[in-house]
Structure formats: structure tokens, C-alpha cells
Design a protein around this nucleic acid. Structure first.
Lengths: 194, 194
DNA sequence: GTGGAAAGATGATGTAGGTTAAGAAAATTG
DNA sequence: CAATTTTCTTAACCTACATCATCTTTCCAC
């Protein structure tokens, strides 16, 4: 059952009966994404919430100097979307790219709205999802303002232990907000100290 | 009617009939806060969503070096809370303080939950509120990673024109993530250039 | 497997913004 | 309105991190 991981993800916050599950499944679509393929690029309108079942995606912006800034990684069991664009249905700023071959489940904005009407529990589910995301983002703002790069990296390691091994370190550097060069130096510095 | 501003705030996203308004009003409490008074301090559990009708609040954290970091201002027509603490009902990290004498409307977490059950529309309202907040926070992360302090200040001026005049500039400095000294220098630098 | 591209390491040098300190101006409070 | 506290300004010096350049290593496509 390809939806198992997703059902389990959802059951953390709301309980669905079989009828509700059927309705839900009807609104989903499976999609495979090849490594380096994009499912969204800046300037496009985001049409889907994407749930990752295997592989890994990353969401990033490109600033006016051409530098990339990773906003989020989406390993299995995570949702990803350009929330701004998805909500407003205006062109977004996020690029979402597969870091490796990735399997996903898509829920269109339109279907999500239908789901809210037909199974109102989903309103709760996505509210909670958004709340959690907001909390994480707020914490990240605080961390960026008050911690050194080294401290932010330690936090990243604790929070995403599974990601550290198989993620190119320039991606991690970008996520914590430093250049790959500085990140490399910082890491060898940290090893030397320990 | 002290609830006018709040009703108007809500009507941007959901429409309430008179019965629903009555239920809603029954769950609200008015509270006046004196300048420099705190409605929440780090370590406490956040019990309310607070809506400001006049005056201004600020939410900030204190890092391990004792430095303050402003996460949000709440001028009239804004909601404020320690979302993390409010959701989890665990001790939070936010201090919320009145920058001037302020009038507020409080909605307890418990009443908010009741509202979700009795008037499910509110689930939608707070979902949208959270979504908007998430979008703003995400943008702030991007801005902090990719813009200079000067650019962040320009954005702040455009986004919160009413705040600039009557906010001590050290508070603005803290919000955009620089020291008051640097902020002062930067501002005179900007004036010189223009 | 091998050739080319991407990722990583490392050194020299540059800069945005921090720190410390001290005085001037403004705003609160009694 | 005077006293006191808070905020703002300016200046000298400092540091975390960026940039640029070059070299080595790893990866992956054919």
C-alpha cells in the first residue's frame, strides 16, 4: 500500500474511518521524481502539497546575486510546498528539486479545499501541520539571530541525524546559512577540537 | 463596541452570523496592559492568544549572552502569542511586553478549542492566520540569509510604516537583527548617501 | 572502469557588523 | 521642571564569516 506512510503521518493528529480514507485516496496522485529533476521553480504557481515517501527533496531560493539558500529538506515522511504560492496562488520564489530519486504523493490545492469541505477533520490536520511548521520557522529565526554557525550546525545534526550522512555538505552549509568554504573550514576546526 | 476591530479582522476570512458572534464574544476577555508590563515571560506556559486594539506589544527572546531578539511587534489589529507554548502547553521562550499602554482582547487556548467545536469556521480562520504567519516567517528567514541589514531595514520601513515613527530604534535594530550601535551608524550612513 | 563534473579542502585577503567606551540628547518620573 | 534613566551617537578596534583562487577528492554517466 503506497499510502501507508502518509496514513500513519496523518494518524498522529486525526483519525480517519474507511469512508474518509477512500475519499482522501481519491484526491491523491503518485509521482516519481528523478534526481536533479524539479517539481517547482521560482516564478511558477505552486499547485501541490507534496508528501515524500522515499528519497529526498530540497526547497531553496536564489537571491539577486545568484546565491542559493536552502529553506527546507523533505526526507521521507515530510510535506513540502511553496506555502506562499500555494496559499495565494501567485508566482512563488521557491525551487523544489530532487536530491536523489524520490517517490512522492501529491495533493492539489483544489483537492485540499474539497477535502476541507467533505472531511472537515482535514482542516484541523493542516492547521496543526502549519502550526508545527510555524513553530519550527520561528525557532530558526531565533537561532539565526542568536547562535554562531557552529551552534546552528550542532542543532542541525541533532534534529536531522538521518540527513547528515547522505546530504552533500554544501546543502547543509546553505541551510544553516554559511558558504561551503566556511562550512568546510568550520567542520575541520570542530574535529580538531574534539 | 470594543470588539469592532476584532470582528473586522475576522471578517476578512470568515463570515459570522449573530448567533456565532454571541458565542464568540462569550469566550473573550478584555485586558489593559500598562507600559513595560509583561503579559508573558520566558518559562511560563502561554495561555492566551492576544489581540491588540490599541497601543503596541513586542515579543522577544533572550539568548544565553543576555541579548534580546525581537520576534514580532503587535500594533493594533494584530494577534500575538508564543505559538510554540500555546500549542504544546509547555513552557515557552517568548517574553511579551507592552511598549506603551495597550488594550487587548484575550482568547484562552481552552476557549479557542471550544470555538473550533461549536463554530468550526474558526478552525479555518486560525488556520489561515497561522498560514499567513508562516509565510511571513519564511520570508524573514530568506531575507535574513540573503539581504544586508540596510535592505532589511528598507523592507521593514515599507512593511510597517506606522511603526517606524513611534518605536524606539533599538527595537527596530533588534527586529532586523543588528546592534543598536550599528543600526545608528547605518542610518546616518543612509541619510548621508541620499 | 574511466573521464569529466561536481564537491570538498585550504590559504590569503576582504568586509559587514559586533564590542567597548564615553558623551549628548531625549524621555520618564516624581 | 529637575533628576534620573533610557536612548542615541560617534569613534576605535575586533571577529565571524565571505570571497577568490587553486588544488584534491569523490561521484556518476557512459
Amino acid at each position: 500500500m503506497p499510502f501507508d506512510l502518509l496514513l500513519n503521518n496523518i494518524s498522529r493528529y486525526i483519525q480517519l474511518n474507511n469512508g474518509e480514507k477512500e475519499i482522501f485516496f481519491g484526491y491523491l496522485k503518485l509521482k516519481s521524481i528523478k534526481r536533479k529533476e524539479f517539481i517547482l521553480t521560482a516564478g511558477e504557481v505552486c499547485k501541490y502539497s507534496t508528501f515524500v515517501t522515499s528519497g529526498c527533496l530540497r526547497g531553496y531560493t536564489v537571491d539577486k546575486n545568484g546565491a542559493e539558500h536552502v529553506l527546507s529538506f523533505a526526507p521521507p515522511d515530510w510535506w513540502i510546498a511553496d506555502i506562499y504560492s500555494l496559499i495565494s496562488q501567485k508566482p512563488g520564489i521557491l525551487n523544489i528539486e530532487a536530491l536523489e530519486d524520490t517517490e512522492t504523493i501529491l495533493l492539489t490545492k483544489a483537492n485540499q479545499e474539497k477535502l476541507y469541505t467533505e472531511v472537515p477533520k482535514f482542516e484541523r490536520f493542516f492547521r496543526i501541520l502549519t502550526e508545527n511548521s510555524l513553530v519550527a520557522n520561528q525557532q530558526r529565526i531565533v537561532d539565526n539571530m542568536s547562535l554562531t554557525a557552529e551552534e546552528r550546525y550542532s542543532i542541525f545534526c541533532k534534529r536531522y541525524p538521518t540527513l547528515i550522512d547522505h546530504l552533500p555538505q554544501k546543502q547543509i552549509a546553505s541551510y544553516i546559512g554559511v558558504t561551503p568554504e566556511f562550512f568546510s573550514r568550520m567542520r575541520s576546526e570542530m574535529l580538531r577540537k574534539s
